[in-house]
Amino acid sequence: MKLRQKKTMTAYLFLIVPLIFFIFVRFFPTIYAFWLSFTDWNIISPKMNFVGFDNFRALFADSVFMKSLWNTFKYVLYGVPLVLVLSFAISLLLNNIRKGQAFYRLIYVMPYITPLVAVSWVWRWMYQRPPVGVINNLFSFVGIPTQRFLFSMDQALIAIVVTTVWVNLGYCIVIFLAGLQTIPKEYLEASKIDGANRWQVLTKITVPLLNPVILFLVVTQSILFLRIFTQVYNMTDQGSGGPLNSTKPLVLYIYQKAFLSFEMGSASSATVVLFGIILLITLLQFRLLKRRVQY
């Protein structure tokens, strides 16, 4: 009995500092962000007025906010399928080979650990137009006309997506490979004996068995693209999300509202919107996973 009490006390003692941390650095700020989103506070003014849903109404009436919301979805809609399809294809190829698999995998993972700021500046430099832009120089070498990339309203967002895909590819490949290696060899052998061709094995066996992995990657990559910021800040002129806001994502909008205009209230409202979207996607994942387990 005494030992048990002592252990309970020890447990609380061990947890006290971490609990204070999680309450004051995670929980309280979350509640505070929600509270701020209903006020008109900017950091300069001493008073903080409760304004109800005014901020949200103003946000959805703000064409720049709507634009950045739509851009954020575009990042997800272009980026997630691209990175998933590419990484799945590459991991299938990697799964075919044995010698050098580790080496190849290593190279693919390298961008993932490189500082994103460095990556952004290198790509920004590569995306320049001639005479200094290496991609355009290579293009003209094979006869493709010069592209404006980051300065084009149609291409800038896609150019940033490409850079991001280059970064995230390795992460997805590693996870796909790990997933592929959990598929029992017997399944594949058996289906081959049954006369299934490669395509049938892929669609009837591999993909269904990898479903949880795919779902996981869809969710984590979606969240990653929803939170895109560093690349856009470093790759666009003056960190503005230009040209003409065509690359500005939600987080850059929030950053500008909060830390350039210091409209903390309405910036917090925008973070609540972001939180809502991320929550929705996470809950959807749990829902889908649960259904799978029940089957």
């Binding site: 005479p131 355009n136 006309p145 010069t146």
Partner: peptide, 8 residues
Amino acid sequence: YDRAGNIV
């Protein structure tokens, strides 16, 4: 301009 018409 270069041959491809890019401003150099």
